[in-house]
């Protein structure tokens, strides 16, 4: 089976400091990979390298493109990479404001990716926008409101709808539940889990919240100081942590 994403020895340095180094893994279609670790452990650097926002100093990131099979996204041309970024890839930011156009209505936000791939029929664009808003539990009467009028949880759900409307195959998520209160987090996770299962999405989720990966991720990577220190099936890593740092991480979760 061809992996959807093949990551080989990716490394990124900020001057003499390590962003992340020696990261290798394969992500197969339909699989959700969690990346956990404390702040500054290189999770976001890794995600940005994979999504083409940062150029890694070493290594290869190969994506299984529809037309030509595995291609290295680091060496492919910028137009091709940006095209992937708005068709087969999606990126959910931690802060919805970074991923949304705040001065454009919800419908326009969802429709933007469709129009970027040459949808030119207003009625059809609007119909898909309504459909996708519904799937993320935003009712149709919000379609012409701007995201500024939305609550934090709604903004995050809108960002997810906007990203999934073109039917991407790989979603990068950077702390998708960060900054949301726990009940909203629970609903969002429930929604994400439903969408991932329903559409068969592959995803890479970066988070420091172990509950998020427990619910969503099939596999888990634990990072510390730019290195992957432990990797495996989610329940295996969380229930039987081997590395001292993972043990610390798991035991630090507050029990209510």
């Amino acid at each position: 089976m061809t992996p959807l994403l093949q990551v080989e020895n990716v490394a990124k340095f900020y001057g003499a400091r390590i962003g992340c180094t020696d990261v290798s893994f394969n992500l197969y279609p339909g699989e959700v990979m969690g990346v956990v670790g404390e702040s500054g452990s290189g999770k976001s650097t890794l995600l940005n390298c994979l999504a083409g926002h940062l150029v890694p100093d070493r290594g290869a990131v190969r994506f299984d493109t529809r037309a030509e099979g595995l291609r290295d996204t680091i060496t492919m041309s910028e137009p091709e990479r940006r095209m992937l970024g708005r068709t087969d890839w999606a990126f959910v930011h931690q802060h919805a404001r970074d991923g949304l156009r705040m001065n454009v209505s919800a419908g326009g936000n969802v429709g933007e990716r469709l129009m970027a791939v040459n949808a030119r029929h207003y009625g059809k664009i609007r119909a898909s926008a309504i459909d996708w808003l519904g799937r993320v539990e935003i009712t149709e009467d919000w379609i012409d409101d701007r995201p500024t009028a939305f609550s934090g949880g709604m903004q995050q759900r809108l960002q997810i709808a906007r990203n999934l409307v073109t039917g991407p195959r790989l979603v990068f998520m950077d702390e998708p539940t960060g900054g949301l209160d726990v009940s909203v987090q629970a609903r969002l996770l429930d929604l994400l889990r439903g969408l991932v299962r329903e559409i068969g999405l592959s995803a890479i989720i970066v988070t420091h919240d172990l509950a998020v990966v427990r619910l969503l991720a099939d596999r888990l990577m634990v990072m510390k100081d730019g290195h992957v220190i432990e990797a495996g099936l989610t329940d295996q890593v969380l229930d039987d942590p081997q590395h001292a740092y993972t043990q610390l991480l798991v035991s630090s979760v507050l029990q209510v």
Binding site: S105, G107, G108, G111, M115, A116, V117, Y122
Partner: peptide, 9 residues
């Protein structure tokens, strides 16, 4: 694509 977002709005 962005130009059409303006017309959509």
């Amino acid at each position: 694509g962005l130009m059409h977002v303006k017309l959509y709005e």
